[in-house]
Design a protein around this nucleic acid. Structure first.
Lengths: 339, 339
DNA sequence: GCGTGGCACTCGACTGCCCCGAGTGCTAAT
DNA sequence: ATTAGCACTCGGGGCAGTCGAGTGCCACGC
């Protein structure tokens, strides 16, 4: 009994099951994949695969279904990444290029990915901490409020309003703006703390209170709590006709609405050599996602990832196609952000 | 046969059906609502209500279920709006007050509304066109790119990058910024076109190309196509155990993912005297939403609505509670934006 | 030792049948 | 106008029987 053939059988089972959504038996297997052997032989292989935990049967007189472990082996065997068709590629590029700002880019990306994969897509906004600062803008609003706008090189814009205790000295604002930008522009936000502290000391004591508040607000904005945003699209794909989940899709939807869960999901995953990570079923370590798989990749200008995106679907998904789409969108998105 | 009692019967049917999710018969009706008459009498009333199209029976030997028309009458009869409990009110206020910027406010609002109503919540961002301009900021990025930032009094920030054909004259930027703001600040964005056109003519011919591009970009940003954004939360509530929809929730989810559909939905609805609008079932004029009802209200600082929010759920929903929650969140949101 | 044909066995899916009960509509009585 | 009584309808649940897909195992041949 060759190990090679057994792998082939597993692969055939996964492919058939993904396509038909039904447990696959030994006969249809030999017919559809013209393996040159008889059903009985396949049955022996299947028994071995079942002993090893790669497949299971829902009930005695039914065919076999891949287990999480089976999908894992299947995915690891997937070596070649199926390239997208060239019309597909053009469509992606065209679609993303028309975006007017970062919100629009992210929004278009997530919809595009949902469309391509026919699954739920999630996209994390470029992390503030890992981005570089492009510009800091201070806008006085009346004489007791100051609007602080933080603009990163990934196009992300954050704004905070400061309520001041005393009337604002209009003179100090342009100076503060200029010196803040001189100090901070171009730096990664995570590296700002120390230079900003030094800057504060360089101001006249009378102005320090204001300077301190501005610096504090900038740093708070970078705090973990509020900085991460994730958008989602394609939830309707979860409700596709042939319902893939035992019971309802509610736990899945609930999990997907928890930013914290999604964030953990995305950040915990380690990309493989092709830059894509796959988590299957229970590997997600979350009850609501026990029957789903996640395919994710990082993106970001000039090679260093500033955030991640991915697709979430039933464990019985088209892994090859999903991986290809996720990878493609991540690449185009990186290119757009760099441009 | 008194018309009063018939209305009471309809009301009782709606209440019971909303609670039990099961067709309600004449006997349980008299028992649960201690109407002082016999089941037979109620049956006559029910027959009349059915002739009038307010209720229907799924099949011969079953109880009655309200029709869209029945719900409509029921909702129109709902005069008093059930006030929220005071802990609820405190929770709302507390929750919304902690928001740091507009994105955060909107995000918190939509989650809060989903939580309160136990349904899908949608919130439209404050309309750009109906907001007033707070500040226009121009930020040179290198010498061939100019970042234009538009900040409204509702806290919304839009940004666009201009790619310039020729090197930017650093001198003209402060002047342009000052004059743009002098012309535009405080005005409703929809009223800007004409003053801006006049402003353009006031510049030296050499600078007009730049001025023109900036003005164009501001006006384009206000164009219908990109200005409207809607966020959604609570999709998981659609998948609640007792599935309320014939077939799947897929068409509903699909409709909710179409910004255009949502937008039409929200803007087409006319608020009643209490500031809340309700659309029931087929009134939504959208196939996917034929079995859902929408409760919406406008919000905005100082009384004039700049956008809308709402809840979407099965026609068999708790209208009184949903209306109360939608109204409350709209009010608190208005207050936050005004403050 | 590996592959194969044959065969008995298992068990879910489907079907037809029956019965029960909830709920109705109608009629006649008050 | 309300009500009691009654015949009628029809969906749903329980039960038995059949069908067929698919398995596991065994004996045989190369």
């Amino acid at each position: 009994m060759s190990d090679d053939r057994r792998l082939g059988v597993l692969r055939a089972i996964v492919e058939d099951y993904v396509q038909t959504r039904e447990p696959v038996g030994s006969r249809v297997l030999v017919e559809r994949h013209n393996l040159g052997v008889s059903p009985a032989t396949i049955r022996n292989d299947m028994a071995a695969l079942e002993d090893a935990g790669y497949i299971a049967q829902p009930h005695t007189s039914a065919g076999r279904v891949p287990t999480d472990k089976g999908y894992r082996l299947f995915v690891d065997q997937l070596s070649t990444i199926k390239p997208l068709s060239s019309p597909e590629r053009r469509a992606i590029q065209h679609f993303l290029e028309d975006a007017v700002d970062l919100d629009d880019v992210v929004d278009r990306s997530v919809r595009l990915l949902a469309q391509l994969t026919q699954q739920v897509a999630i996209v994390q906004y470029p992390s503030l901490r890992r981005s570089a600062l492009r510009h800091l803008e201070l806008v006085p609003l009346g004489d007791r409020r100051l609007l602080v706008v933080i603009i990163t090189d990934t196009g992300r814009v954050e704004q905070r309003t400061l309520e001041l205790d005393e009337a604002l000295d209009e003179q100090v604002v342009p100076e503060l703006r200029a010196r803040l930008n001189a100090t901070a522009a171009g730096r990664r936000l995570v590296d700002l703390t120390e230079p900003l502290a030094r800057l504060e000391e360089a101001f006249a004591p009378a102005d320090r209170a204001l300077v301190h508040r501005v610096i504090t607000v900038v740093e708070d904005t970078l705090g973990e709590a509020t900085e991460e945003r994730i958008v989602m699209a394609g939830a309707s794909h979860l409700a596709r006709s042939g319902t893939d989940f035992t019971g309802t899709i509610r736990p899945v939807l609930e999990a997907l609405e928890e930013q914290v869960v999604l964030l953990r999901l995305l950040t915990e995953m380690a990309d493989d050599s092709a830059g894509v990570a796959v988590r299957i079923g229970h590997e997600n370590r979350h009850a609501g996602l026990a029957e789903t798989s996640v395919v994710a990749a990082g993106y970001g200008a000039d090679g260093n990832a500033v955030a991640r995106l991915g697709a979430v679907g039933p464990t019985r998904m088209d892994y090859a196609g999903t991986i290809a789409s996720v990878r493609a969108v991540a690449r185009y998105l990186s290119r757009i952000l760099a441009g």
